[in-house]
Amino acid sequence: MLNKTRLVARYTAGERMNHWFVAMTFILLALSGLALFHPFFFFLTNLFGGGPWTRILHPFIGVVMFVSFLSLVVKFWSNNFITRADLEWQKHLGEILANTATDLPEVGKYNIGQKYLFWALVVIIPTLVLTGFVIWRPYFAAFFPIPVIRVAVLVHSVAAFIAISAIIVHIYAAIWTSGSIRAMTRGTVSAAWAKHHHAAWYKKVTEENKL
């Protein structure tokens, strides 16, 4: 029975705090951005103290999010290279999603879905920052010609849509894969969880611990 609760460390306190800081600022950005996205969401401005406050706060939160996101990217970078085993694993995606997969290739610290999310955000968050600056009033937009602003605001809204969709999938995946959330809240996962979902990573950390 002891084995059942044997835990493997997955995230340091620093990584956890960094992750949740990015998560909080991202949610605030998504809510304040969506408020201006379509009239359907305009009521969200009430969460931020009205329309003008939403407009004022959004880009500042964006800059804070970007800086903390960069720090997270540096921490997670090296574990996100896609390997041959990942591509093999991807072929079984249908079974994996149906919870019927057996004998999957061994996965490292992250599976290919998590890696796609990582790289998608690595591209999209800087896109949001760059286009965000171009449309940022009253401070920066005046420096750009109107045709550039038009492209920037279109790209910003599409990029935001992709980012928010990706994060919804990310959140769902964390809920669906039971035992995952404690990795980011407590920093540890059960050994069984590690072996089942990230066998290669599990082997690596247990070997390191033996040394």
């Binding site: 994996i96 769902y172 669906w176 039971s178 035992g179 069984a192 089942h196």
Partner: peptide, 13 residues
């Protein structure tokens, strides 16, 4: 996401 969960349940070791 919601209906996926309702259909197949959690992914569990």
């Amino acid at each position: 996401g919601f209906f996926h969960f309702i259909k197949v349940g959690p992914s569990k070791e």
